[in-house]
């Protein structure tokens, strides 16, 4: 059998996905047996122009991590799409927008103002912002255009598969790679993970009827070790998050933050979580309900930590 041609790329991401890919350890040898890596900026010395020169559909699979937040990333996504038979969104940012997606609460100017002007560590020497093009004496220089809105990979190009997680667990990565190596890919559109149900299904804590009278933050107390965190007032997003990770966070008393994205078929993970929490607030008194909910310090960051660009509203009003 001919060896697979594999490309890996990163866009708006933190680099954690690369580390996660390496976490497969010595199984990377198995991968190397089955596949040639033709492009992987973080690890191998293939150049942009090498890829550009390839025929369309000459790469078998591209693992693309990171969201799309500037013109270069969009360009790379489109190019790799054209060159690849199968496009896989790897990790929360490519799948749902991820942490960079929270940038959709602001627009470009607001982000620039903060980063290049308002932060304490910025020198106050006027309003110097990045310009997409600059005429230097040596000629015109260009940097990518920064967008107002962060997009998921599939909002820019067609995507065949999704590997969830921030970053994906090593076993999730291997599940996908193994399927690739064996040529046993699931139906198009599949989110590859060990579970289609929510994290609760992986979680060994005891669950009962939920009635929340007070919402807590993790530093406030040490939760009971065997009882559902949500029942103890910690906003564990596990109820609204696809499992497959093994419920690692709740097992060590940290509420799930939702990185594996919504459960199979769910449109808008954050809305589902919000609606679930609102349904179990234990009060009929409007004022009391308001008080209880006012303890949610960062509602968007809690409900949509990894999925704002993938939500029905996608972003805050741009003005």
């Amino acid at each position: 059998m001919a060896k697979l041609k594999l490309a890996l790329y990163w866009a708006a991401s933190c680099g954690g996905c690369e580390i996660a890919q390496l976490l497969i350890g010595d199984r990377i040898l198995k991968l190397a047996e089955a596949a040639d890596i033709v492009f992987w900026p973080v690890a191998i010395d293939a150049k942009y122009k090498d890829v550009e020169a390839m025929e369309d559909n000459s790469i078998d699979v591209c693992l693309f991590n990171g969201a799309i937040r500037n013109s270069e990333q969009e360009h790379m996504a489109r190019m790799l799409r054209a060159k690849s038979k199968v496009m896989i969104a790897y990790g929360a940012c490519a799948c749902r927008g991820g942490i960079p997606g929270l940038g959709n609460l602001h627009n470009r100017q607001q982000i620039f103002d903060t980063v290049y002007r308002d932060t304490a560590s910025t020198e106050k020497n006027g309003n110097i912002f990045p310009q997409p093009s600059y005429k230097a004496p040596e000629g015109e220089l260009e940097i990518p255009v920064f967008y107002d809105t962060v997009s998921t990979l599939n909002q820019v190009v067609d995507v065949e598969y999704y590997i969830p997680g921030c970053p994906p667990e090593e076993k999730t990565t291997w599940l996908a790679l193994e399927a690739l190596i064996q040529g046993k890919l699931p139906p198009r559109g599949t989110v590859i993970s060990h579970n289609v149900k929510a994290v609760c299904d992986d979680c060994s804590r005891k669950r009962d009827i939920k009635k929340i009278k007070k919402i807590h933050r993790t530093y406030e107390f040490i939760p009971e070790p065997e009882i559902c965190l949500l029942e103890q007032g910690l906003l564990c997003v596990g109820v609204a998050t696809r499992g497959g990770c093994g419920a690692l966070c709740p097992q060590v008393s940290m509420p799930c933050t939702g990185c594996y994205g919504p459960v199979e078929g769910v449109i808008d993970q954050g809305a589902h979580f919000l609606s679930a929490v609102a349904s179990v607030i234990d009060s009929k008194d409007e004022e009391e309900i308001r008080t209880i909910l006012s303890d949610v310090r960062d509602p968007v960051g809690t409900c949509y930590r990894y999925s704002l660009p993938d939500s029905l509203v996608r972003r805050a009003s741009i003005k």
């Binding site: 149900k197 929510a198 009827i209 349904s279 179990v280």
Partner: peptide, 13 residues
């Protein structure tokens, strides 16, 4: 039932 994770959010509602 292929999607219910037994979270019990719905149980008392």
């Amino acid at each position: 039932e292929t999607l219910c994770s037994a979270c019990k959010v719905c149980n008392a509602l």
